[in-house]
Amino acid sequence: MSLQSIIDDFEFLDDWDDRYKYIIDIGKTLNSLSEGEYNDTNKVDGCASQVWFIVEEKVIRGKNVLKFRGDSDAFIVKGLIVIIFTMFSEKTPEDILKIDFIGELRKLQLQENISQQRSNGLTAMINTVISEAQKRV
């Protein structure tokens, strides 16, 4: 799944009921963390739903990339995590920093769900993605 395919699917679904159903569906593709990884260290601050998030360094095709794993107890948040990971995961820190994530999220009209509220922990997650990338360039 690429971000562009999600954007295309979204354009096809013109009603928000279907878009949320879609987000819930892609959320189901998120791999669970191992039981021990649902701990306080991996927990992201947020109050409406719980989010856990892990950053790993990997070498893929000879490049040092950042790989993200995570989960939430809320279905929509799971879907939003998939979108965030599709945007950022398995990319080099330099490529991560080049991404205009607010612009991309705006194409999905999801910027309000992600960038402006701390309640679902996704803002904190994106901030961590950016700061982890910045540390490595």
């Binding site: 279905f75 929509i76 948040v77 769900n113 679902n120």
Partner: peptide, 13 residues
């Protein structure tokens, strides 16, 4: 089967 956050987000629309 649904999280309160999911419900609040969906009915917001």
């Amino acid at each position: 089967g649904a999280h309160p956050h999911d419900i609040a987000t969906i009915i917001d629309r």
